[in-house]
Design a protein around this nucleic acid. Structure first.
Lengths: 227, 227
DNA sequence: ACCTGAACACCGTTCAAGT
DNA sequence: ACCTGAACACCGTTCAAGT
């Protein structure tokens, strides 16, 4: 084993040891989330991936909650700058929210993080700004714009969280189907009829989001026209 | 120490020792949730409240996840049998969903449980049945009834979860307000304008639920009339 | 200022052993 | 069949001690 071999080994095993920073921590956490899901994510594991101990992270983070908020905002960096095409504002709104949905769905558990965290990071604010602009373009009043964006984001986030459940529990979903199949017609006439007609597919996908956005936007507009 | 004293003490300290059952466990867990919130709830603590060890619970529960589902369904036992008054189906729908919201809001953390659990318990099914009936009364088609109930429940649950956050983090919410107050007008013109107009109150309460239900129901009806 | 090992106060779940 | 103590494999967070 000559000098060359020793040299190579030392370079490989300690490449300046990734100097640790908020960004590095958040990136590492997101990649852990993507590969192992929310159950596989912990401060200890993030630290281990960064070749250090969990205590070291507390120089950059107040707590786990803060890491969650940073992760969410970082993930939202992938949002398109604005929905490029011309078309109608309503279609662009649908596309934009579909982007949001797919960002959440790409990382198992991030939707749940989004449900329990309030981010005020730059990318989150930009998303709000874009959505407010789209509703403004649609001629929706200021007050209803705020409530509308809140409602749209809440709904898409919740849809993503539900989709997450469907994926992660897997056969628990089958348990629900079985429970429905056995439901007594006497007590639950509507449920059993609808089940027979195969109307409990468990949607939650790309189709469902378009429908939901249409319902919410259509509902806001309809409310306006009624006073 | 005579016989009498010994007798009394043994009665007091071990009143037949609460013979342990699914129902007892779930009731104990719900009361723990109500008093200490979700962070104060654990299998070990439920077991301790029942004067036993955590391992004993596994005779009645497969795991924590199952306890969550049982808790949710048990809490839903409080739902009114149906919204009693005559009035319109739409108002009764609003009241019914307001009941659901308040059941979730009474127990801090239950909304988050509801977001990550799929219950097929009797009380959950009854709630679905009632909601399906109300939308049927409203003349909404079968397919849209299912999607509509799903959407309504998802939304109210998500609202409750958000409300939960607002309460439990408390000053974190203030942090968001501060972040909004400082937002650069150049990059976020709409956000800063709306903030100045005081339109970020953080609603989420009884008013908001009526509005949201109106939007969703109105949206479903509006969609129908467009084809 | 930044990093760390060790400790603290917890978790859910399993399992061998008891009744 | 039901219950249990102890153990296993984890957590987030703190803190004294190092550089």
């Amino acid at each position: 084993m000559g000098t060359r071999a020793r040299h190579t080994v030392s370079r490989r095993s300690r490449p300046a040891k990734a100097p640790l920073s908020r960004d590095v921590i958040v990136a590492s956490a997101l990649s852990l989330l993507e590969s192992d899901g929310l159950e596989g994510l912990s401060l200890r594991r993030v630290a281990a991936a960064l070749d250090t101990g969990a205590a070291s992270l507390y120089v950059y983070l107040a707590n786990l909650e803060e890491l969650y908020a940073l992760m969410l905002d970082q993930a939202l960096a992938e949002m398109p700058p604005t929905s490029g095409r011309k078309r109608g504002w309503r279609d662009r709104l649908k596309d934009y929210l579909a982007s949001y949905l797919s960002i959440l769905n790409k990382r198992p558990g991030l939707a749940h993080v989004a449900m329990s965290t309030i981010s005020a990071g730059p990318n989150t604010l930009r998303m709000w700004e874009v959505l407010l602009g789209l509703l403004e373009e649609g001629g929706i009043d200021a007050e209803e714009r705020v409530a509308g964006v809140d409602m749209l984001l809440l709904h898409v986030t919740a849809m993503a969280a539900e989709e997450d459940n469907r994926r992660s529990v897997g056969h628990d979903f089958k348990r629900v189907r079985n429970a429905l199949a056995v439901v007594p017609r006497k007590d639950f006439p509507r449920l059993s009829t609808l089940f027979e007609q195969g109307l409990f597919s468990g949607s939650g996908d790309d189709v469902a989001i378009g429908w939901a956005v249409d319902v919410i936007v259509g509902g806001i507009l309809a409310n306006k026209h009624r006073g």
